[in-house]
Design a protein around this nucleic acid. Structure first.
Lengths: 130, 130
DNA sequence: CAGCATCCGCTCGGATACTG
DNA sequence: CAGTATCCGAGCGGATGCTG
């Protein structure tokens, strides 16, 4: 409970305020790749190339960037195993684990309501055309 | 019903497959502005300029685009009131309402765990610098 | 009030090549 | 295997001006 350094008092965080740090956080989480990686890590530690293969469509560069950001944010833990060749495991931190339930909820929502969305899109497009 | 790990093969849809429609859906939802708009609409119907003011930092163009996409996806309903001048209300559809709980969970997570994230970032940066 | 049209900078992200 | 480095095209999104 240090008061020195970054003195942010019991200041009410608000995502609707564009100057609030939570807005930046939302920007980070509102990322397709980050969500997929977090969701994939929910099953347990995963190695880099395995992650690359499982999250289909992600490039090596973007996966690397995404993991680095998640690690910096304290959501993901990076462990290097000194084997030959080196293997690196990525896992959720306790903090990251507090988030995956919400992330999974998103993925499940998409999977469960895809039909309804596709139907709505078709209806919208038909109305616009006719 | 596999025993090891969490399996999710109940539905044909799979967000990890880049050719699956849900991937497109995730891409839509994984948008800062869309999430904020949906969260704001959770309180009830809101007019355009009110939305523009409340979701701080959003531009008129982006708000317009976002609302149109959400409407097309069947998540938001657009109602024009023939007053002078015209007023337009945006509200969640029943489908959209099934999503807001998850969206709100995201916002709340950010607001509750911001301190931890900022601390993690500071530690990461300090380690990188030293 | 609630938009659309246009210009354009800037970042995201894909492709490719190389390293420990 | 697990990355880093670089190039570069596409598009997101901000600023501005105009309309019913």
């Amino acid at each position: 409970m240090e008061t020195a350094g970054s003195t942010r008092m019991t200041y009410p965080y608000d995502v609707f305020d564009d100057r609030c740090p939570t807005r930046m956080m939302l920007d980070r989480l509102a990322d397709k790749w980050a969500l997929l990686v977090l969701d994939r890590l929910d099953g347990g530690p995963v190695r880099f190339n395995r992650l690359r293969r499982d999250v289909r469509g992600i490039s090596q560069k973007v996966l690397s960037q995404t993991l680095k950001r998640l690690e910096r944010d304290g959501l993901v833990d990076r462990t290097v195993h000194p084997t030959v060749p080196v293997s690196v495991e990525y896992a959720l931190t306790p903090l990251g684990r507090t988030l995956t339930e919400t992330v999974a909820a998103f993925a499940h929502w998409a999977e469960h309501n895809m039909e309804a969305v596709l139907t709505a899109q078709a209806a919208y497009d038909a109305a616009a055309a006719g």
